[in-house]
Structure formats: C-alpha cells, structure tokens
Amino acid sequence: MNGMTIIVKNISSWIKILIFLFGIYITLFGHLTPGGGFAGGVILASSYILLTLAFGKRVTDENLPLWLASRLDCIGALLFLAISLVGFLFGASFFFYNFIQQKYLAQHASDFHLVSAGTIPLSNFAIALKVGASLFMVFLVLSTFRPGEPAQQE
C-alpha cells in the first residue's frame, strides 16, 4: 500500500494537523461546550485514519504502530480509573470525588472558564486517549485483514 495520489497526499498533510487540533480543542473544552472525551477521541482517531488512507500503512506503522496504540488504550483506561480513585487520597472515601473542585476551585467562582469543573477535564483527556487509540486500533486491525488471504498471525 503506497497511498493515494500526490494531490490527496499534499492536502491531507495539511488537513491532518487541523483535524488533530480540532480533536484536542473538543476534548479540552468538553466541560464547557458540546463535545468531550468521546467526540474528541473520535476526531483524533480520524486524523490518523486519514493519514493511513492517504499515505498507506507504512507511514502509520512508523508514527503509531499497533503495539503503541494498544499501550495508549490501556493507559487511557487506567488513567480514568486512577482519577476516580485519587479521591480516596484526598480525605473522602468515595469514588469519583471531584477533589480539585471541592478543595481548590470552589473558592473562586470560575464557571465557564477553561480551568473549572475539577477533575472532569482530566477525565475527558483520559477518555479521549482511550477512545482515540482504540478506534484507530479497530480501523487498523480490520483493514489489515484481507478476505481471501489465508489467516495470518496477529
């Protein structure tokens, strides 16, 4: 797979950055505007999918190979779990304790700013990592299996 024509390659090398940035924006502003971790993660994954479609599989193998995507997937999930557990360290003995909001941000009335809502942006980031990596992995795994070829090792 060598990818598509030079036009597609040129355009997508510009577009991919915009898509990636848009994904980061959607993730970071998830607690203020529509969007959030899942939507942002899907957009992040789609930038890599565009890369794979335009440039062929070899380029993605160098940038985000399957094993790295798998690790990122696990890290995202563990990060989300860790955020929910960290509340135990901050005095409250329950899950999903929004410790940042309760301890530090509650004094400053900062609704509708980027730094607000405590742990929610962090969770959004973890979810975006998880969703982006796993969606890209689904795409990669499904696209590398060719019907008709004999079954191959994973």
Partner: peptide
C-alpha cells in the same frame, strides 16, 4: 459491531 465485523471477516477467511 467491531467484534461482529471481525468475526465475519475471520469466518469468511475460513
């Protein structure tokens, strides 16, 4: 859906 499609592909290979 991803799991179903992958099972379909593997079944087609077999």
């Amino acid at each position: 859906l991803a799991l179903m499609v992958s099972i379909c592909i593997r079944t087609y290979q077999r």
